[in-house]
Design a protein around this nucleic acid. Structure first.
Lengths: 238, 238
DNA sequence: AACAGATAATGATACATATCATATTTCAGG
DNA sequence: CCTGAAATATGATATGTATCATTATCTGTT
C-alpha cells in the first residue's frame, strides 16, 4: 500500500511558489542550481477543509510547507479526545523538527481551512543539509524558532485559567492569523477546546460570557473583538 | 558586565570527556582534526545542587552538555511559581534547539544535583554546522528527538489526573534516570509540582496515598517503588 | 423547503483540584 | 546539641472545571 505522502505527491503538480522558505533559503545559500534537489520534487496539493494531510504512523517522506490556508497538528489518544499541538499558517512548516527525529509521523495533520500545501522531498532536503552547511544552519534556525514557540505556548496556556485561555486563542486568531478584529473562526468550539485543553461546553460558556460583557460579538463562527484591551487583560491575568 | 557564560567558562578547565555527544559526532563526521573548533573551547564546570547555570536573558554563547548530575530547565513567571520544562540527564544538551532560535536565553537552567556540565562554544558549533553538513544532519537528528520528547511529555502529562501525574514522575525517576526501584528524589515536592503542573500540597497528599496503599515507601527524599505494576496502571489510567 | 445530524448554547450538578490553616518533621548553621 | 527556617504532612473548605441533560441553532443534503 502506498503511503499518504506518495498518494499526495501523485495528486500534485510542480510548485513554483516564490515566498517559499525553502526556495528563499536556497536562493540565499545555494549558488547556482539550487533547483537541482528541491524544485524538481516540490509538488503542490490542495486539501479541502477537514481533510487529513498526514496520519500518525505514516512514513515521513516530505517536508510540508503551507502555501495557503491553515492546518492543525494533533495527537489522537484512545480514550480522550484529540489534543491539538499547534496551528500552522502559510509559509510555515507543519511538522517542525520532528521530521528529523523519526521515520514515521507521531502526530496527525489536517486542514482546518481549504489549504494548499507544498510537499518537498525530505530525502533531498537531507541531502541539501549534508552538502550545504549554511543552508543547514538557516533551516535549523527557522525550525527551532517554530519549535520554541510551540513549547512557549504550552507553558503559557497551562498557567492560565479557562477565561485566560479563551482570550488567548481569540487574540491568537485576531492578531497572529487574520490580523483583523473581525474574523471567521476556522475551528469549531470543540477544536478550540482541544487546542487549549478544556471542555467544549466551557469554551462555549466563556465565549458567551465575553459576549454578555460586550467584549466580543458572536455570530456563530464570525467573531468580532469589540474590547481588545479588556480581552488582553483577561488573557494576561488568567 | 560579563555574561553568566563567560563567568562560567572562566571557572572551567579543558574537558576531555569521552562519552560526549559532540565528540562522538565529530569522531563520526569530522575526518581528521575535529578538535580544531570544539575541543579547544570545551570547558568543564561544576555546579553544586541548587546553583543556577544560566539565567533567562543571558546571552547564549555555549551549548551546554551535562556530563554528570541532573539539571532542570524552567520558566519563572511573575505571579505564579516556576514551571519546569524538562529535566536533563548526563550526555544530553540542556537547552535543546532553542540555542539556534534566539541570541538570549528564554529559560533558566539550574542544577538539581551536584552537576558537571560542559560548555562548548556555540560559535564554533555553528561553524562546524556550516562547514560540515553530515555533522549538521546528525546533530539535528539528536536535538530534534529531544525536543520531540519534551512536546510529547507535555501532552501526556496534560491529559492525566493528579494521581497519574505523580505516578508518571515517580516512574520517570525510577526507570529513566536512576534505573532503580529505590532512589533519592533530587527535587522537592514543590519542584515536582512545578514539573507536572499541580500544587505542592497535592503532590504530597497523593504520595502519601500511594504510601498508605503500599505502592511506594517514603522516607522523606528516599523513595522505593514497591508495587511497580500498580503504579504503572495508575499512570496509564490517569 | 424540509429534514437530519452536527454544532452551539445554557443550566444543574458532581467532581477534581486549589487554597487556607495548622501541625510535624527535617536539616543547615550557629 | 540547639534553634529556626524550610520542607513535609494532613485536614477543612472553597473554587474551578467537567459532566450530564436539554434545547436551540446552524449547515448541508435531498
Amino acid at each position: 500500500m502506498r503511503s499518504e505522502d506518495e498518494k499526495n505527491i501523485a495528486r500534485g503538480s510542480v510548485c513554483e511558489c516564490n515566498e517559499c522558505i525553502i526556495r528563499d533559503l536556497m536562493f540565499t545559500h545555494v549558488p547556482s542550481d539550487g533547483s537541482k534537489y528541491v524544485c524538481k520534487t516540490k509538488v503542490e496539493v490542495h486539501f479541502k477543509k477537514g481533510e487529513i494531510i498526514v496520519r500518525s504512523g505514516d512514513e515521513i517522506k516530505s517536508m510540508i510547507c503551507i502555501k495557503e490556508g491553515l492546518t492543525k497538528i494533533y495527537r489522537s489518544s484512545r480514550k480522550h479526545s484529540d489534543q491539538i499541538i499547534s496551528i500552522t499558517k502559510p509559509f510555515e512548516f507543519t511538522y517542525l523538527l520532528s521530521i528529523f527525529s523519526d521515520s514515521h509521523y507521531n502526530f496527525n495533520i489536517s486542514a482546518i481551512e481549504n489549504t494548499t500545501v507544498c510537499f518537498i522531498s525530505l530525502e533531498n532536503i537531507k541531502k541539501m543539509i549534508s552538502e550545504n552547511g549554511s543552508f543547514a544552519m538557516s533551516l535549523l534556525q527557522k525550525l527551532s524558532t517554530a519549535t520554541d514557540n510551540v513549547i512557549k505556548n504550552f507553558t503559557d496556556i497551562n498557567q492560565k485559567n479557562l477565561s485566560g485561555r479563551v482570550a488567548y486563542i481569540l487574540l491568537l486568531f485576531s492578531d497572529e492569523i487574520y490580523k483583523s478584529p473581525v474574523f471567521n473562526l476556522p475551528v469549531s468550539r470543540k477544536e478550540i477546546a482541544e487546542l487549549i485543553g478544556m471542555t467544549t461546553e466551557n469554551v462555549i460558556r466563556i465565549m458567551s460570557e465575553f459576549r454578555k460583557e460586550g467584549i466580543i460579538r458572536i455570530r456563530t463562527r464570525e467573531i468580532e473583538i469589540k474590547d481588545y484591551q479588556r480581552l488582553k487583560l483577561i488573557m494576561d491575568q488568567g
